[in-house]
Computed example of a mutant assay.
Amino acid sequence: MAVAQDWELDGAFAVRALIVDDEPLARHGVVLRLRKFKDVEIVGECADGRSAVQRILERSPDVVFLDIQMPGMDGFEVLRALPAERLPAIIFLTAYQQHVLRAFDVHALHYLLKPVDDMRFAAAVCRARDLIHSALKADMAQRVIKMLDRTTDQFASRFTVQAGSRIQIVIVDEVDWIGAAGDYVELHSNGRSYLLRETMSGLEQRLDPAKFIRIHRSRIVRSKGILELQSIENREFTLRLSDGSEHRSSRTYADRLERWLSSEGI
């Protein structure tokens, strides 16, 4: 369940901070430390990546204390979901392995190791304060983007879709099937549907072929969700998925479905 907490805003503060961590004690520790800085205002707390993206877009914080390891949507995915021009200053909170810390060092990004040391915390806040009030903020955003490019996966792990005035995050591994809808594709996940402005061919390139199969020019299905196949004729099938939906494959994409059947030992 998404957890987010808003704080009352006061225009007298110079630095607006958002805290993102799935551990309540970790968030509380950051809150207590930030209260020592009279020019820092806490504009919210988030316990997951999806609510963090929404809060950053809504509140435009100057600095975000961002945990890397979170279930569902990690800290890197939060940053990838944001437009480059909306990236705030970032102080990463991490207990990550050494090779990830080296990536931060290479790109001169601020991070705090858990458990957080008070002196390092104070130094990180001071650096962030200097950063947001200078021309270096855009340079920092570019360093974050370069670091994300180095750590990015080959295939998409989430989609960002616009739903009215809200931004929705759809986790790729939770998508049951995808259908063509004019100039859009329709993502079906956990009983809900989301419109994404993308072509089926373009979307297919972003999906891991080990997890998704295109069975028709207007259908892509998650392979783990296939429960039953019923042969029709001419190498065509009716597929029943775990969400209860049924889809017809076409001869054009028969080779892909047959390769999957073979890989499953069927």
Rank of each mutant, 00 (worst) to 15 (best):
A2T: 15
V3K: 14
D6A: 07
D10V: 00
F13R: 01
R16Y: 04
E23Y: 10
E23K: 10
E23M: 05
P24T: 01
P24S: 02
A26C: 08
A26W: 03
K36R: 07
F37D: 09
D39A: 07
G44D: 03
R55L: 15
I56D: 02
S60K: 15
F65A: 03
F65V: 03
P71D: 00
G72K: 01
F76T: 13
F76N: 10
L79C: 06
L82D: 01
P88D: 05
P88E: 08
I91R: 06
L93R: 03
L93K: 06
Q98L: 12
V100L: 13
A103K: 11
A103L: 13
F104A: 13
D105V: 15
V106Q: 11
A108Y: 04
K114S: 07
D130L: 13
L131H: 02
H133F: 09
A138D: 09
M140L: 10
Q142L: 11
Q142V: 03
D149R: 14
R150A: 13
T151W: 14
Q162C: 08
A163I: 10
Q168S: 11
V170D: 01
V172C: 01
I178A: 02
I178Y: 00
A180E: 15
G182S: 06
V185K: 04
L187C: 02
S189Y: 05
N190I: 09
R192H: 04
Y194E: 00
L195S: 04
R197P: 06
T199S: 04
E204D: 13
R206V: 00
R206N: 03
L207F: 15
K211G: 02
I213Q: 13
I215T: 06
S218P: 05
I226P: 05
L227F: 12
I232R: 15
E233P: 12
R235N: 09
T238Q: 08
R240H: 11
D243I: 01
S245M: 13
R251K: 14
A254G: 10
A254W: 03
D255T: 10
D255R: 10
E258S: 14
S262W: 14
E264C: 11
